[in-house]
């Protein structure tokens, strides 16, 4: 695969098969994709189409059964677990459908989690900016279960953005939110993309996000239907 300067992340012939003692399920079949710097990309498809699996493989949270993923010119398969973890820590951010906040620590500690994990100091001014922009300034000392879904998701976004990652992987970020919150989050993504040139790879089955993105990868039964 030829990688140009614009391409930040790419995948080549990605396949994923889940095997148990009785069943073999092919979730992804020969998926090829490229993601440019500073772009907003959607992975779109119905439930069970393999979007989350693809996202996890692109993010390095899972391993493909076949194929390769490249971040710039570095192939995931050639990296050790520690190198891949470092790559994730510095360059990636994650927003999950279920927020995945750690329930036993407060919101502030959740947001600062990437800093703790990577041993990188965070920009305190930027942190203040994030919690202000996301409207969770007054909530940072609270526990996750004390917040509503929208508030938790905003906290998760703050966490994902803390170390100014190059790519944010968002898996159904608005899946558990109402219309108003969905709109808020969508606008927030756009704003962060414009201001910080953060690349977004978003998994969704909502059609209203399509108009704002540069690339839509449609999956059906593990295969790309239209690019």
């Amino acid at each position: 695969m030829i990688i140009t300067e614009d391409i930040l992340l790419s995948c080549e012939n990605i396949s994923k098969t889940y095997e148990s003692s009785r069943i073999r399920t092919k979730v992804l079949k020969q998926v090829n994709a490229k993601f440019k710097k500073g772009s907003i990309n959607l992975i779109y498809g119905k439930s069970g189409s393999g979007k989350t699996t693809l996202l996890n493989i692109l993010a390095g949270l899972d391993k493909a059964s076949q194929g390769n993923v490249y971040y710039l010119e570095k192939r995931y398969g050639s990296m050790s677990d520690s190198d891949l973890a470092k790559l994730r820590g510095i360059n990636f951010g994650f927003v999950f459908q279920a927020y995945h906040l750690i329930p036993r620590i407060n919101i502030e500690e959740n947001i600062l989690c990437p800093s703790y994990v990577n041993g990188n100091k965070y920009d305190k001014e930027y942190y203040q900016f994030l919690i202000k922009v996301l409207g969770i300034e007054m909530l940072v000392k609270k526990m996750p279960y004390e917040l509503s879904g929208g508030e938790q998701q905003r906290a998760a976004i703050a966490r994902a953005m803390l170390l100014k990652p190059k790519i944010i992987f968002a898996d159904e970020p608005t899946g558990n939110l109402d219309t108003e919150n969905t709109k808020t989050i969508t606008e927030l993504f756009q704003k962060l993309n414009e201001e910080y040139k953060t690349t977004f790879i978003i998994v969704t089955h909502e059609e209203n996000l399509i108009e704002h993105c540069e690339q839509v990868i449609r999956l059906r039964d593990g295969e790309i239907v239209i690019e």
Binding site: L61, A85, K86, F94, H100, I102, C113, P114
Partner: peptide
Amino acid sequence: SYEYGVLRSFGMSYKA
């Protein structure tokens, strides 16, 4: 496991 998953997703290696 869930919490460890979160930490790992944000850059903590398995060995660490």
